[in-house]
Write a protein that binds this DNA or RNA. Structure first.
Lengths: 351, 351
DNA sequence: GTGAAAGCGCTAACAC
DNA sequence: GTGTTAGCGCTTTCAC
């Protein structure tokens, strides 16, 4: 086989890919000058800039960011951790996070922790080992050791979708308790008295429902009936949960408390399941049963009847998290480090 | 402030994190021995292994994979490209890909190319620059320059969710044309004669629908009515599309061809929208209108009536892709490099 | 089984 | 504005 023209001395290691040295040689400058031409173009003469650009496009050079990250201790990589990508809740956040980061030249690395939390520590080590410029946590109850390692790593951390008293670092979210209270107040104001809830068994959903039940109690309503379903939630588990609520309610107390007349669901998908089951049983919605979802997924407005739901601006969470991380990565302090983005209740036909 | 006990000479650069050198010093061995104790534990004496393990847990050492990747030209990072994470189609694939990779010690990096493909080349460069051990492409029509750069990078590539004649490297998917044909055949066999389709304007969906229309033609059916909607598809666009199909059909030809009696949708969400609109208009499903979805999302079986749909084993695609990449990364050849995972039609109440 | 030396490809630091 | 030097933290290569 012929050696390529003007081949360098055979390398002993390496991938064989074009390097910055190759580009620099072609452009007739020192490697560091080529580096500057690419990274800080305005600190270099016009002439050098064009020569280097030229060499880059002729060779198809793609900078090795592993090497760059190692040398500069800036990887331009941001990690996000979600319980599972299969659940729709965080998609909007991950989507806008990815976009906002890409605009600023950062890349997203995605990790799935699972709802159980068993793999959490291993995942965190895998992430920290990559020295990302930031870590975004969504809906994770992190173990004590996990917290400690995050702290020790010195990597900027943004926790999202919640408001905790003791954030690791930065925080963008809303109060799940307030959501539960607001929904109870709404249903009470609408004249509903026998409230129920269907919630996935993740910590945040349980917190919403607990606050909802407590608020109902304070409003003098009978005890809220609860149905728990596994996370991630599905339409099917919504149907089954309503079936359980209705059947157990009918059997018990001989109707002293009567049938439930409102259900708060921990996701819109669950709410759609409840709606489907209600229709299958000939229960009128909202006539006999009011339904409230959570998340304001894009389908919520278009089902029949349209779903009342709690709207969270997931996109804003993602953008704010990206902003936090990029500011930190570029050496600027961010203050305040906690942002409460709130929520709103979108009233539609189902209540 | 006190210096930490036995502080090394102040480093001029670096993150200040614990390094393998620190661990090695603590364990009383050379750095390379510590490296071996962690990466190839069985090539090291029992004694060294425990001493190093001990030093690791005392210091909380997390290996810097940027440095490791640079030295070994193996990053243990795999990139996946999806049009958008907001669409539900690829979630199962991404989910199982992440899991399968994590099990083998690889981490996923996610990129969103968008359905338009404008950002595609920039995204590919950002990915290639990270020197992943593999790249998984889902549903991307890649530009000629994109293909060239992928090829030039030498990184193993798996294209998924399609079967093309000229794969870049490895491939796991199914035939979209065959899906369209099979659906047309099914509806024909069920006695449906006036077929319609609602499809997102992405290349693959259009291909399914084109094959569906062609098959209908060959079966002697009247021309298929088509409605195009923007990708990603939503419940709402499904409702609107059915409305358009019905209204235009009624106005035109004075009923010579009559109302449509079957709709093939390019996603289950779209199908749910069609179903919702049909119900809102008092059209009986499947009596007056048969509906077929695509994807067999988990809700498809549980809506009323349950949705007939095309089932793709997205999880298997992800696992197979992970297998391909890991095998390659570990130096083993894979043969064959193309896997057709096929599809099945799940008949439920909506037809 | 263990270690010394020499990079991987890039950029910070400090000249000039 | 441009270049030289010396690493970043790890693993390959080659000795012992």
């Amino acid at each position: 086989m012929n050696e390529p023209v003007s081949a360098p001395v055979r390398r002993r290691r390496g991938s064989g890919a074009i390097t910055l040295h190759d580009v620099a040689r072609l452009a007739g400058v020192a490697p560091i000058t080529a580096s500057r031409a690419l990274n800080t173009p305005d600190r270099v003469s016009e002439e050098v800039r064009t020569k280097v650009q030229d060499a880059v496009s002729r060779t198809g050079y793609v900078p090795n960011r592993l090497a760059g990250g190692l040398a500069s201790t800036r990887s331009r990589l941001v990690a996000a951790v979600v319980p599972t990508i299969a659940g729709p809740v965080f998609l909007q956040t991950v989507h806008s996070l990815t976009e906002a980061l890409a605009e600023r030249g950062y890349q997203l690395m995605l990790g799935q922790a699972g709802y159980t939390g068993t793999r959490e520590d291993a995942l965190l080590d895998a992430i920290i080992g990559r020295r990302p410029d930031g870590i975004v946590l969504t809906g994770i109850v992190h173990s004590a050791t996990g917290r400690r390692r995050l702290l020790a790593s010195g990597i900027p951390v943004v926790e999202t979708w919640d408001l905790t008293a003791t954030p690791i670092d930065m925080l963008v979210g809303f109060s799940h308790s307030e959501v539960g209270q607001a929904v109870a107040a709404l249903l009470h104001a609408k004249g509903r008295r026998r409230l129920a809830a269907v919630a996935g068994n993740d910590e945040r959903a349980q917190r919403r429902v607990a606050a909802y039940a407590a608020a109902a109690r304070r409003l003098g309503l009978p005890e809220v009936r609860l149905a728990s379903v596994p996370a991630p939630t599905t339409l099917k588990s919504g149907r089954e949960a309503l079936a359980r609520l209705l059947d157990s309610g009918a059997g018990r107390e001989g109707g002293s408390e009567g049938q439930i007349d409102a259900v708060f669901c921990s996701s819109d998908l669950l709410a759609l399941g409840v709606l489907t089951e209600a229709r299958a049983r000939g229960l009128a919605v909202p006539g006999q049963l009011a339904i409230v979802g959570f998340g304001d997924q894009d389908f919520a407005a278009d089902v029949e009847p349209a779903l009342t739901t709690v709207r969270i601006d997931g996109g804003r969470i993602g953008r704010q998290a990206a902003h936090f991380i990029v500011e930190r990565a570029e050496g600027r302090a961010v203050e305040p480090r906690v942002v409460d983005i709130g929520f709103s209740i979108v009233e539609r036909a189902s209540t």
